[in-house]
Amino acid sequence: MCFNRLVEHISCRFRSFDPRLYQIASLSTLLAYGLLWLHFDVSILQITLTFGTALVTQYAGTRLYKLPAFDPLSALVSAVGLCIFLRTNSMAVAALAAGIAIASKFTIRWQKKHIFNPTNLALLVVVTGGLGWISPGQWGQAAWFGFLIACLGSLVVTRAVRADVTLSFLGFYVVLLITRALWLGDPLTIPLHQLESGTLLIFSFFMITDPKTTPDSRLGRLIFTLLVALAALGVQFVLFRPHGPLWALLICSPLVPLIDRCFPGSRYDWARPSKGELTPPLSAPVFVPLSISSQQRRIS
């Protein structure tokens, strides 16, 4: 009871803030931990360039697409995500990745929603091009519990925005990994080891949760996360390729418009976080993006 009240209290306290501020704070803390304790190969120059390019691209996109206001928050989330995942020896590639990430939001769209998670798309384009790499084992297992707490904390303060996506994806993924281990007759230490991955946690809490690239309705999101979990395991254990979850998200993202068509829900707005239930049209028509004119579009 006490805990619930505390959670409620914290949620109320932070309700007036944009959830992306917490995402930026959490991801920046993780990046700082990686830089200071784990000695990640990311230079200050790379960080500066990634942030700089992301903001410049966002600004350019805002102007080119005549959006009402420059909104740097989503670009910052993408930039810090790239700094955490992407490793490259070329600063030009770091900048290119940030450019691809943000530009994809403006260019690859379907029914006023961008299709791919910007960070995910940019990472895989760069890795496939042989320009950079991702080190999924870089976090080790030492600080995993601390990591989990940081991620769960972020879930609380972000008012459980798309918490169903994180929890259902992790749920499906855990069940599938354990089922595989039982089928193989492996000790449970193996699926546990596979789950003790900082990369998997960051993916589950900060990447797959992007409300702009997940289905609008809850049922749609459950179907989507099941597909992502299945595809992630397929990439790892059938195709034997690394970065299963990242590839899975990229493959499943184009299915979102289809899922939205079958299971419609209300479109997400960063300014008014919602869980996707369809809002009655008369009560708050202004926040249903389908009714927003092109001048009021928000790309984030």
């Binding site: 080190s135 084992g137 080790g140 297992q141």
Partner: peptide
């Protein structure tokens, strides 16, 4: 080359 399931 690096390991993907352990820290290199």
């Amino acid at each position: 080359v690096e390991t993907t399931n352990y820290r290199t």
